[in-house]
Design a protein around this nucleic acid. Structure first.
Length: 506
RNA sequence: GGGCGCGUAGCUCAACUGGCAGAGCAACUGACUCUUAAUCAGUAGGUUGUAGGUUCGAUUCCUACCGCGCUCACCA
């Protein structure tokens, strides 16, 4: 028998002993008076005398707490434990004299990782630590498996992703990441709501997919007997809503793209997309700068955010055209001039791409993208890589579009929406040609979208922000998997837990 | 998909050039009524990711596979 099995069976036996003592080892309501963070906030700076006035102490602070046991230091007939709740920890002091015989028997059956409730009063130990003097114990849930090591926590990356619950229990900094994530999302929501945007939900299963250049996942609906695509973007549906007169809409949810995984890509990822009628991409640039700065403030407390070796300044966003960026960040010999990168022949001669616009986009990715460390807006994109954006009034090769780059990552994409159905039809047709040339990420024809646009779509600005990447920046994480609770992994194979539990019943 | 690296007790890690697979934490027994990575004495715990191969002998060398990480490619 392995050690782990031994602990498992021994603890299962303890469940019965705990029951025999009159406690319910699982599933009992427990109305606590304070969470541990609340206790630390309210009493963290109180002195020993303030907590327990001398001598007999009728006015001591009595509280009732639920928490998970983190460490235990037993010393004969007394013990100290650290327990944690909501990412904060508190010390419990348990003395045989101070609790009932039944509770002391329970205490002797407790394991690190058990969830317990306690009544008692707050005091300071001889060394000055705020602690709970336990007077009554309650049992709330049993741990059967051994906890990770208390000092190092759970380090194994794979286990941290697969068993995120363990990661969250044993690594406070991992918990902090997801708290930051929640702050980023609520900051975005609040800012959009304040500006009159309403939140909507559009289909994630679509018969025609679009709104981005990507390959989709395919699934199947049985009774309708149709294949459906998991959406690669909500864009085309949100713009249908703009046609319908929902003039400021946003959606925060998942997109699915059937591509490789990396430190910056997970096949399902979260975006916020928002659309505002009667504005354009310049209006969105101003809004975006404000929003990024506010997200940084709301989630980290400052506009300057540490990221690896960098200090990212979200209070100061640079703006460059794509052509300027290619010229400025050109690597190696033969740096082009602005006239070169405007010249279709030069562009085609310097890449293997089929069109000047794809060529410019490629040169930008190769030379400039990873050098954009501080928050930077890149604007004026080639028409060929922007099938849904409106033409620039003064340059037929370009569209009114920008992207935001931080730490070499694209975190946002916005443009003045194309609202002319005749031009949109031509763009779809040229996407179909790219598809015929073997580009399986080019857009499909979406006739209902053309129909919607034919009812008249107001001039509109639209934008998408990658939430996961934003959270990476705000929480100083280098891998997208660190900011997604359950990132996609290959299946792990036999776990054997059901069998183990089955044996306990036998 | 290519390249590089990693996989040893529940967890965190050792094991020299191929020569008895070890420690700390966790667990168990005992001592201890203000400890804090508690301490002290003792006990138990291993298919070294899997399957082959080389060898008198493999955690160590070789091959394949599985899983994870980094990186390049692909990709917003």
């Amino acid at each position: 028998m392995s050690l782990e099995d031994g602990i498992f069976e021994q603890r299962a036996a303890r469940v019965k002993e705990i029951e025999a003592l009159g406690f319910k080892p699982y599933g009992k309501r427990f109305d606590y008076t304070h969470t541990i963070p609340e206790i630390l906030a309210a009493y963290g700076d109180k002195t020993a005398e303030e907590l327990v006035p001398p001598p007999p102490a009728p006015e001591a602070v009595r509280v009732r707490i639920a928490a998970r046991i983190q460490t235990v230091r037993r010393m004969g007939k007394a013990a100290f434990m650290h327990v944690q709740q909501n990412g904060a920890k508190l010390q419990f002091y348990i003395k045989k004299d101070a609790i009932s015989e039944q509770d002391y028997a329970l205490f002797n059956l407790l394991d690190i990782g058990d969830i317990i409730g306690a009544d008692g009063y707050l005091f300071r130990t001889r060394t000055g630590e705020l602690s709970l003097h336990v007077e009554k114990l309650e049992f709330l849930s049993k741990i059967l498996l051994p906890m990770p090591e208390k000092f190092h926590g759970l380090e194994d990356v794979e286990t941290r992703y697969r068993q995120r619950y363990l990661d969250l229990i044993s690594n406070p900094e991992s918990r902090d990441v997801f708290v930051t994530r929640a702050k980023v999302i609520s900051s975005i929501r609040r800012q959009l709501e304040e500006r009159g945007f309403i939140e909507v939900e559009t289909p994630m299963m679509q018969t025609v997919y679009g709104g981005a250049a990507a390959r989709p996942f395919v699934t199947h609906h049985n009774t309708l007997d149709v294949d459906l695509y998991l959406r690669i973007a909500p864009e085309l549906y949100l713009k249908r809503l703009i046609v319908g007169g929902l003039e400021r809409v946003y959606e925060i949810n998942r997109n699915f793209r059937n591509e490789g995984v990396s430190t910056r890509h997970n096949p399902e990822f979260t975006m916020v997309e928002f659309y505002q009628a009667y504005t354009d991409y310049k209006g969105l640039m101003d809004f975006t700068e404000e929003m990024l700065r506010q997200i940084a403030l709301d989630s980290t407390g400052g506009a300057v955010v540490p990221y690896g070796d960098l200090q990212l300044d979200f209070g100061n966003v640079r703006r460059l055209t794509m052509r300027e960026a290619v010229v400025e960040f050109w690597e190696g010999d033969g740096r082009p001039t602005l006239d070169d990168v405007r010249n279709p022949e030069w562009l085609l001669a310097n890449t293997h791409k089929a069109t000047p616009g794809e060529a410019l986009g490629h040169l930008f990715e190769v030379h400039a993208e990873k050098k954009l460390q501080q928050p930077t807006i890149i604007y004026e994109f080639p028409i060929e890589v922007s099938p849904l954006a409106n033409n620039s009034p003064d340059d037929p090769a370009m569209v009114d579009r920008f992207e935001i780059f931080v730490a070499g990552m694209e975190i946002g994409n916005a443009y003045t929406e194309l609202n002319n159905p005749m031009e949109q039809r031509r763009r779809f047709d040229s996407q179909l040609q790219m598809r015929d040339r073997g580009d399986d990420e080019a857009h499909q024809m979406d006739e209902d979208y053309l129909r919607a646009m034919s009812f008249g779509m107001p001039p509109t600005g639209g934008e998408g922000l990658g939430i996961d990447r934003l959270v990476m920046l705000m929480s100083n994480r280098q891998s997208i998997r660190d900011v997604i609770l359950f990132p996609l992994l290959r299946p792990e194979g036999e776990i054997g837990m059901a069998d183990r539990l089955r044996r306990l019943d036998a």
